[in-house]
Computed example of a mutant assay.
Amino acid sequence: MAPLRTVDKFVATFIVDNCIEWMTKLPPGFTHEVPQHLQDHNPPIDPVTNTPFIDLENYCCGAHGFSALIETQIEGESPHYTLFDTGPESKSIARNIAAMHIPTHQIERVILSHWHSDHSGGILTFLRIRSASEHAQDMPPCVVDVHPDRPTARAVAFQGPVAGGRPVIGRLPSDPTFEEIRAAGGVVQASGEGHAVADGTVWVSGEIPRVTQFEGGLLSGIRWVEKEGRGEWIKEEQLMDERYAAVDVAGKGLILFSACSHAGIVNVVKDAVKTFSRPVYMIIGGLHLAGAELMPRIDPTVDFLANRLRPSPTYVLPMHCTGFAAKVALEHALGKACVPAGVGHKVTVDGDREADKILSSPSIQ
């Protein structure tokens, strides 16, 4: 069994996501963005009515990407703050960190889920913001936890041959280099193996085994490679550098972060269950089921989460690249267990050590 410690408190704050969701009723422990501003962030007060303003100029913005702050704590110990991905670019990460009053100096580690710029694009900006914090000099440098196989370039292309580069739709912006991360104040830690971080309270997976028949990776994925002094685009449907993160909450089970699920969320869940033999309490992130070419994956994915995984997840938070059709299907199958999360939301889960003694073992039917 992997060395993952069970925590007594878990908090996630969503810093970057495609969606802004203010209105939907949320389960206990979930908080919309607006109440956090009005109650916790010292909002500006209207001098006429003595009422706090909904200060839209300084609220979160949506962006095509993902970033979440993970707080983990074991009773009697100090909390740990881990950033999972950083969104696509400099503007959204900077605005939303400021909007949510994120304590950047307390963030010990950035976990990059995979080398795609909609997840890595804000790393350098985050590191610079952290370094500029008035408390940063009292903290150790931030570790940036990455897979060692950083590509020269990636792009998305039409299905079919990629000869001559003609089918390329567009090249993704470059991921930050190891040298750029170090120059911005980060400490690069590159690993393709699973490992525990945050004093053992957060698990970073290794390469995710591909064991399902219907989850076929990123069909439009291509990668630039150089051979004998010449470069070319080659197909890369399986992004083997992708990793997920896991937290184990006492009396609840595993909380899984899968930022894009190019490996397939069923493969992610199967690997987590096999690794930890703990039930899955919550699934968070992009499930990569958007687009016409991925429609056939929706039904078997939903069937697995709703019917084959036992116990089924208490909550599924389909975000980022999940897609509207998949969200509808998940809501139809899971009901209130499918939570419409978005940027600015906060999720708090309190552990229960007594309940942990009778927690059900997971099974896959």
Rank of each mutant, 00 (worst) to 15 (best):
V7C: 01
D8I: 07
A12L: 09
D17W: 05
E21L: 02
V34E: 05
P35A: 09
H41S: 05
D46Q: 10
P47H: 08
T51Y: 03
P52D: 01
N58H: 15
Y59L: 15
A63N: 11
I74Y: 00
E75V: 00
H80Q: 13
I93G: 05
I107Q: 03
E108K: 12
S117D: 09
L127E: 07
S133Q: 00
H135A: 15
M139W: 05
C142M: 13
V143F: 11
A153T: 04
R154H: 10
V156M: 12
Q159I: 03
V168Y: 01
P176D: 09
G186Y: 03
S191Y: 06
A198M: 12
S205Y: 04
V211G: 08
Q213D: 15
L219T: 06
I222N: 01
G229K: 03
G229V: 05
W233A: 13
I234H: 04
K235D: 09
K235H: 13
E242G: 03
K252R: 14
I255M: 06
C260T: 07
H262Q: 07
V268E: 13
K270H: 04
K274D: 15
K274P: 00
P279A: 03
M282T: 06
A292H: 05
D303V: 03
R308H: 07
T314L: 12
M319S: 07
C321L: 08
G323F: 02
A329R: 15
A329F: 01
L334K: 09
K336F: 00
P340G: 05
A341L: 14
